[in-house]
């Protein structure tokens, strides 16, 4: 035994090192993915027997108006969230100076990302309050009538997305601040000698060097947009009349409140497939970088 161990240690040890992480991950992440897809072919209330119904959940889903509303809202989230990297970059450029106290200012700018989305949701619900919210007061001071953003079917999703952008911009800002710190000074000096400055400099010299930061910023922003659940649940519960729902929330609602596990699993599977496009892209890039 010990003879065998000594001889093959280098071969066996890595698998032992890997085992705990892999086992918990397989049990709680990999297996549930497969199970969810399987459940999506059934009708199930979560307690009784599952009844296999083939693709019926998906057929129903594609005719369900609430599904399309949620999907559309996910698209809004995705598109508007893409504002986070450029705004984050703008703030990072603004803050990338060496004046006294700037370190503290940078950390304070980063604050919204550190606090829980539950708190962000509560803060913004308060901010939008049509009676005494700050937004109402600000609009009132320039003569605009109060708008109840969170109870307006057309505006509610934008209101929630704005709340979500607050921490997301902070995240992108920190990525860019770190990126700006590791710029090559030689290239910048050379470009300056050639007379480059301002936006042209930013576009042709700085942005290419910030590519890694941009890549991470876009990945985390896309994932954040598609994962949006907390803010919707905190601020509106998907309302009014389901107009601010997103797939993540719609799934939760169907399974937890309506006990339609099969249907919920089908929604989750669709969301998972959408997300897979981005995950595959990320993995492909990562593996390519790994090989080179």
């Amino acid at each position: 035994m010990s003879q065998y161990w000594r001889k093959n240690q280098v071969k066996i040890a890595p698998w032992l090192f890997l085992a705990p992480a892999f086992l918990v991950f397989a049990l709680y992440v990999l297996n549930p993915i497969a199970q969810s897809v399987w459940i999506s072919f059934h009708e199930w209330d979560g307690l009784g027997e599952k009844t296999f119904i083939g693709l019926a959940n998906y057929e129903e889903l594609f005719e369900d108006e609430q599904f399309w509303i949620s999907l559309e809202n996910n698209v809004y989230w995705l598109v508007l969230y893409m504002l986070a990297p450029p705004i984050g970059l703008a703030i990072a450029l603004f803050l990338n100076q060496n004046v006294p106290g700037i370190r503290l200012v940078k950390s304070l700018f980063f604050f919204p990302f550190v606090i829980s989305q539950v708190v962000v949701g509560l803060i913004f619900a308060w901010f939008y309050d049509p009676h005494n919210g700050l937004l109402t007061l600000l609009l009132g001071s320039i003569g605009i009538e109060p708008i109840a953003i969170l109870s307006d079917e057309d505006l509610v999703t934008y209101g929630i997305i704005a709340a979500g952008l607050w921490p997301q911009v902070a995240y992108c800002m920190i990525l860019y601040l770190t990126g700006l710190n590791s710029l090559s000074p030689d290239q910048i000096e050379a470009a300056r000698l050639d007379g480059a400055k301002g936006l042209r400099m930013l576009w042709h010299v700085i942005l290419p060097q910030l590519m890694p930061a941009t890549f991470i910023a876009i990945v985390v922003t896309v994932i954040g947009a598609l994962r949006s659940f907390d803010l919707v649940a905190i601020m509106t519960d998907g309302g009014p009349y389901g107009s601010s729902s997103v797939l993540a929330y719609f799934m939760y609602e169907q399974s937890m409140f309506n006990y339609r596990m099969g249907y919920g699993a089908a929604i989750a599977t669709v969301l998972f497939l959408i997300m897979d496009i981005y995950i595959a892209f990320f993995l492909w890039r990562m593996i390519r970088a790994e090989r080179s």
């Binding site: 280098v10 040890a13 890595p14 698998w15 890997l18 992480a21 892999f22 991950f25 709680y28 992440v29 990999l30 297996n31 549930p32 993915i33 199970q35 969810s36 459940i39 979560g46 994932i223 598609l226 994962r227 659940f229 797939l247 993540a248 799934m251 939760y252 399974s255 596990m261 919920g264 699993a265 929604i267 989750a268 599977t269 969301l271 998972f272 997300m275 981005y278 995950i279 990320f282 993995l283 990562m286 593996i287 790994e290």
Partner: peptide, 28 residues
Amino acid sequence: YNIRFRILLFAIFVGGNFIPFQILMIPV
């Protein structure tokens, strides 16, 4: 360690970390 499937295993950990929580919810 130069173990078999190491890129695949790594990709599983990375990819699993980006999935939507809802796909895990009911089974978990």
